[in-house]
Design a protein around this nucleic acid. Sequence first.
DNA 1: ACTTACCGTAAGTGGATACTTACGGAATCG
DNA 2: CGATTCCGTAAGTATCCACTTACGGTAAGT
Lengths: 98, 98
Amino acid sequence: MAALADPTRRAIFERLRAGPRAVGELASELPVSRPAVSQHLRVLKEAGLVSERRNGTRRLYRIEPDAVAALRAYFDEFWSQALEAFKAAAESEERSSE
Amino acid sequence: MAALADPTRRAIFERLRAGPRAVGELASELPVSRPAVSQHLRVLKEAGLVSERRNGTRRLYRIEPDAVAALRAYFDEFWSQALEAFKAAAESEERSSE
DNA sequence: ACTTACCGTAAGTGGATACTTACGGAATCG
DNA sequence: CGATTCCGTAAGTATCCACTTACGGTAAGT
């Protein structure tokens, strides 16, 4: 999740949501240089958020579905646990006459 | 989301999941000083992830449910959009005889 | 009022990091 | 082969950021 902290990296990640893209293609749409995009993609790849496939001289990056599923599960779990705590707190307050 | 990048801050956020906590209480369970926890809580508060309530000399921090819901919605949306792109790509590959 | 408990803020510092330019490697085309 | 395209890596730099110590401020207890 730390990999998604940087705004530029999040922008890259969100663009890959629509389908696989090449490095230069992404760089042309962003206000940073191509090597910067390369470095961001490496971070995303090491975090398991994207994967790479070589196609001629180009390298297509795509989103790793399992990673998105894991993040989704994390916040789902977080949500239900927080909700449970809220309910418990509300009930205990109710018992203490308030 | 950038607020959840730091591991210490994520640890604080996850501990608040079980219910409201005071600053010193959180600091005693973490390998950082109390002011560090204070600063992290300020970041989380400015990000809208937690809220504060004064209780005597102590300040209780609690999770802001709307923020968690927003994050959950973000990844849900991300997931469905990525899935849609996958389906579209699979169909177009299928049409191109493969 | 004085002390104690609890906390936020200021200032300073070491380390991480996002970016640039420069360079070299791999695949395609003539 | 030579030229071109596309890309990763190295090196250097400026900025950001997480942390500590020191200090001040507010609320409760004696």
